[in-house]
Write a protein that binds this DNA or RNA. Sequence first.
DNA 1: TACAATGATTGCAA
DNA 2: TTGCAATCATTGTA
Length: 338
Amino acid sequence: MDDQTRMMTGLTGLGGLQQADVGDPDSVRKQQSLGQPQQDIGDILQQIMAITDESLDEAQARKHALNCHRMKPALFSVLCEIKEKTVLSIRGVQEEDPPDPQIMRLDNMLLAEGVSGPEKGGGSAAAAAAAAAAGGSPTDSSIEHSDYRAKLAQIRQIYHSELEKYEQACSEFTNHVMNLLREQSRTRPISPKEIERMVAIIHRKFSSIQMQLKQSTCEAVMILRSRFLDARRKRRNFNKQATEVLNEYFYSHLSNPYPSEEAKEELAKKCGITVSQVSNWFGNKRIRYKKNIGKFQEEANLYAVKTAVDAANVSAQASQANSPATPNSGTSSSCYTD
DNA sequence: TACAATGATTGCAA
DNA sequence: TTGCAATCATTGTA
């Protein structure tokens, strides 16, 4: 006898139940003795399905009646037997998922940006770096810094509230499914392992939704960062003194306007800018000078004169320092050097 | 407001 | 990696 036939045989005893008769073995016996044709499994299933269309009280009553039915243990044991055979085929399906590298990357990024985890200066550091790279004044950078932080805080807040919603929905849904399964376990065999597996499936589904949230949050942070890190958007001209220092070096090394790394560092220090800004400046200057030497000739002459005067001053200072007969030499030369 | 000046970025070559 | 050349985006000025 195959499983289905056995089940059908077991279930035939439940056939022909009327709503009022359910739970009343006498009425079943009466119906059987009256020679009513055996009804097929469809009837009983229909009755079970009909429970959902009934009011809560009616459904409860019918459920109770089905649970108390004398054939219920037979049905349950048949289901157990079938289960035992089928569970072997699904056993292999259950395996532990390795941590998703994509989720790990997103988590790391959100953590580094200060969106997830404890609120700290992750994003602030990025904003400060952005301001420094742009060469903005301390006041400007602090304004942008707070602006960046405010926007990041906004993203953080949205992220956390959405995450909370997802987690709440997940736990509600999990509870709901677990209650359903527990309830169903009265009529069909459901092991705790199966409930666990179902919970894991639900969590996987919700975690894929979470991944989408994390992904869009990361995108928002990247857009915010790129907006703040794009130095072109908040370019500031170097101050006059810095430009003079750079021009002086450029025109005094016109035959080879390529400062060494040490010279770049020195110039950067003098001008209050970064080494890469010095490199940019020399790159731009060389190309623009080469393109239009005529235009820069006047400027070149000006700095040549300035350099000559400075050199003369230095040598005068040196010669005066070597002559002890000259009084107040320091005060007279300082008016040229300044 | 148009335009020149200027600092930064990008793509390519050496 | 560095420098060049082209280009972008912003600032400063007439």
